[in-house]
């Protein structure tokens, strides 16, 4: 089905470069369709309105930070009682400093909050979004928590974030010790095996 959708996108939205991404050979899970980030609005609009595989519902927008690039996944669903199918539509953003995508709020109203969350967590900006603010973190929070290189800010509005006196270091030390013990155990098991 994903092959059909990819070829349908390619024939209707020029420049979308849709391709099917299958899970790796030693892997598992869902396959998805990858499109060019500059045509995301056109692709979404087409997917919602086409006759063959209409997707009236946008369930969630999930941003993933792969360090070299950001991936924004749109989870679409048909909500058709006879023929229920869903699609992971992906697009990649190489620009780490200023990642930007066209907002799809005019297509699905659900995108409003989802894009705000995506901006809040990953830091992808959405062009022409009607209400482009943070949603879960405070408006003046620094950094984007779900990026892989995120570091919590030291001071927020004069308050110390994670003050040492209130941190539970015993647990952390225990975690470190546990990891060492596990590695040690694994090593010994391997030695015994060979």
């Amino acid at each position: 089905m994903h092959n059909d959708i990819a070829s349908l996108i390619n024939s209707s939205v020029p420049g979308a470069n849709a391709s099917v991404v299958n899970p790796p050979e030693d892997g598992a899970g869902d396959s998805s369709v990858l499109v060019d980030s500059s045509k995301i609005y056109e692709v979404c609009e087409f997917l919602k309105t086409n006759d063959k595989f209409p997707f009236p519902v946008l369930q969630v927008i999930s941003g993933v930070d792969y360090v070299e690039y950001f991936e924004v996944c749109y989870m679409l669903a048909s909500f058709n009682l006879e023929n229920s199918y869903q699609l992971i539509l992906k697009t990649q953003l190489k620009d780490r400093e200023n990642p930007e995508l066209q907002s799809v709020v005019p297509v699905w109203a659900a995108a409003n909050y989802q894009e705000r969350e995506c901006y809040d967590m990953i830091g992808v900006r959405f062009k022409d979004h009607p209400d482009h603010r943070r949603i879960l973190c405070p408006d003046d929070w620094e950094g984007f928590p779900l990026r892989k290189d995120y570091e919590v800010q030291k001071v927020y509005r004069g308050m110390e974030v994670n003050p040492e006196a209130k941190m539970n270091f015993e647990d952390r030390e225990f975690e470190v010790r546990k990891k060492e013990m596990e590695a040690d155990l694994l090593k010994r098991q391997l030695e015994r095996g060979h």
């Binding site: 899970p23 790796p24 030693d26 892997g27 598992a28 899970g29 869902d30 998805s32 369930q59 969630v60 999930s62 993933v64 996944c73 989870m75 869903q86 992971i88």
Partner: peptide, 26 residues
Amino acid sequence: KLPKGEIFYRQECPRGELGIHIVSTG
């Protein structure tokens, strides 16, 4: 250890459909 890949799985919870998107690198 999950195999490489990703999954979006949803179910009917009391308040609506809850979906989980897991990305695994093995």
